Simulated scan of single mutants.
Amino acid sequence: MAYLPHAPLLLLIILVVPPNLSQSDIFETLFPTMQKHRMNKVMTQEALDYAVSKYNEISSDLNLSRVVEVLSVYKLQREGTIFYFEVILGQTICMKDESDLTNCPLFEQAVQQERKLCIFLVYVASDETHPSMETLTCTR
């Protein structure tokens, strides 16, 4: 696994953000070389899919979660690519242990519509074969 020299600082930024500033604003200020990015690239979508699958793998939720909204995406190109995702996740009606998870709609009832703001920091090596989750933070 590649070492990200800024990973501890990024984690600190993500976890200790003043409530009146968005994490995106702080990110742009401290890392001006990171560029705002769009979700229209295959590698970007694959990195987000990887992050969500890792979230589902380690979360204690019984239901599968999926992206409801992408709030921001940043990308930093170095020896590999670092993606910063700020997304809203919602719980689906699918249980994690079901065999077919291809069509999992979100809960329709307001009581069950649990949403989480999540920050994912994903590193994709330059050969694009081994993504790794560097940071995963979610709040309700």
Rank of each mutant, 00 (worst) to 15 (best):
N20V: 07
V67P: 06
T29K: 13
Q77D: 10
S53L: 13
E46G: 03
M43Q: 12
Y84T: 05
L62W: 08
Y84E: 08
Y50F: 14
D97N: 12
P8W: 12
F120Q: 12
N103E: 12
S65Y: 04
Q112D: 11
Q35G: 05
L136M: 12
T139E: 15
Y123D: 02
V124N: 00
E57R: 06
V70P: 02
F83I: 07
Y55D: 04
D127V: 01
L12M: 12
S24P: 02
L101H: 06
M34I: 14
D127K: 02
L117F: 05
D97L: 11
A125T: 10
K54Y: 12
S99T: 14
R115K: 15
Q23H: 02
Q112T: 06
F83S: 02
N63V: 03
L71A: 13
L9V: 07
V87T: 08
Y123V: 00
D127E: 04
S53K: 13
K116C: 05
F83Y: 11
T129M: 13
I26K: 01
E108T: 15
F27G: 00
E108D: 15
E86N: 11
Y55F: 15
L21P: 06
H6S: 06
I58G: 03
E114K: 12
S126L: 03
L21C: 15
Y55P: 10
I93N: 02
F27Y: 03
E114P: 04
K54I: 11
F107K: 00
D49Q: 10
P105F: 01
S59I: 02
E86K: 07
L21V: 14
V16I: 13
E79Q: 07
D97A: 11
F83L: 08
N20G: 04
M43L: 12
M39D: 15
I14E: 14
L10S: 01
N20W: 10
E86S: 10
P18T: 06
C94P: 06
K41S: 07
V67S: 04
V73M: 05
G90H: 00
F107G: 00
N40S: 13
V16E: 07
I82V: 10
F27H: 01
H37A: 05
P105I: 01
K75D: 05
K36E: 06
L48F: 11
L64D: 00
G80H: 14
D127G: 02
L117Y: 09
C138I: 08
Q113E: 06
L117C: 06
H37E: 06
T81L: 04
R66G: 09
S132Q: 14
Q45P: 00
Q91L: 15
E46P: 01
D127R: 01
L106Q: 11
F83M: 09
K116M: 08
S22W: 02
S72M: 04
I13V: 15
E46D: 10
Y55T: 09
N40R: 12
V16G: 03
Y123F: 11
S65V: 07
E98V: 10
E57G: 11
T29Q: 14
V122E: 06
M133S: 03
N40D: 14
K96M: 05
K116E: 09
Q35I: 03
I14F: 13
M95I: 13
L106W: 09
Q112M: 12
L106E: 09
D49M: 06
E69Y: 00
